[in-house]
Computed example of a mutant assay.
Amino acid sequence: MTQSMKTDTALPIFSHEYWQRQAVLCQWFANLLIKELDEPALTAYRAGDAAPLLGWLSEDGLGQEAEALQSAIAGFTLLEHPRLELAADFATLFLSDARHSAAPYASCYLGERGSFMKEPAQRMAERLRNAGVILPADVNEPADHLAVMLDYLAGAYRQLSEQPLTAQSEPLTGISQFLQEELCSWLPAFSQRCLQTPVVSPFYPTLTQLINNFCRQRLQEANRD
């Protein structure tokens, strides 16, 4: 996050800058889901560093979701031990038994509940290989972890931002297929399970609802004529 980002003007859809924004937002979501917030990140959030990113989301029509996440961030000050309590929420939601938690793996929702490393993980691993993507050594997660998938989507948007406007049709079709088949197919159930899991802070359930609506909006956008 950085306070130097500007949100003064909504960007034209399909512009290079617009796709770059979507890449940054996808990368932000991925970073939030791959590990717990540390103390420097919490300090940055309390200082308002998320405001530019939330501003982008509001400009893109996700104002209600952005406001809800901002409210959850403001609520960090009400926690007695923010880092520890948010880490406990992260563990409860994403690290517990997949049969009883909101495990962030596509295989758990597109197959038998609580299942791991099924067809969604194999498809995603193939996508990563085809794109020449090697996960960092500290990311010890299956390929169908939501953070990995959002990181992949961020890369697709970065590549799209480098294409001439007349050559965006094919990569947009690929993004549309990825969103429809690999993300929007299970994110509603995932975000709903997050909302139903008792936690101390609304931060992560609100975040996952935002990600669900963000991906649904990106799918509708990619399918425009």
Rank of each mutant, 00 (worst) to 15 (best):
Y105E: 09
Y105C: 12
S107N: 01
C108N: 04
C108T: 06
Y109I: 04
Y109G: 00
Y109P: 01
Y109Q: 03
L110W: 03
L110S: 03
L110K: 08
L110M: 10
G111C: 06
E112Y: 12
R113L: 10
G114M: 02
S115M: 08
S115E: 10
F116W: 11
F116H: 05
F116I: 08
F116G: 01
E119Y: 08
E119S: 12
P120L: 07
P120H: 07
A121Y: 02
A121V: 06
Q122M: 15
R123T: 03
R123F: 09
M124S: 07
A125Q: 10
R127E: 13
R127I: 10
R127Q: 14
R127Y: 15
L128P: 07
L128V: 07
R129E: 15
N130L: 12
A131N: 11
A131Y: 14
G132V: 14
G132S: 11
G132W: 12
I134T: 14
I134P: 00
L135K: 09
L135G: 07
L135Y: 14
L135V: 08
P136A: 13
P136L: 08
A137C: 11
A137I: 12
D138N: 11
V139C: 13
N140Y: 15
N140R: 15
N140E: 15
E141G: 09
P142T: 08
A143R: 01
D144P: 08
H145M: 04
H145Q: 03
L146M: 10
L146I: 15
M149H: 08
M149P: 03
L150E: 02
L153M: 09
L153K: 00
L153N: 01
A154L: 11
A154G: 14
A154K: 03
A154W: 02
G155C: 13
G155W: 14
G155V: 12
A156M: 13
A156W: 04
Y157F: 12
R158N: 09
R158V: 09
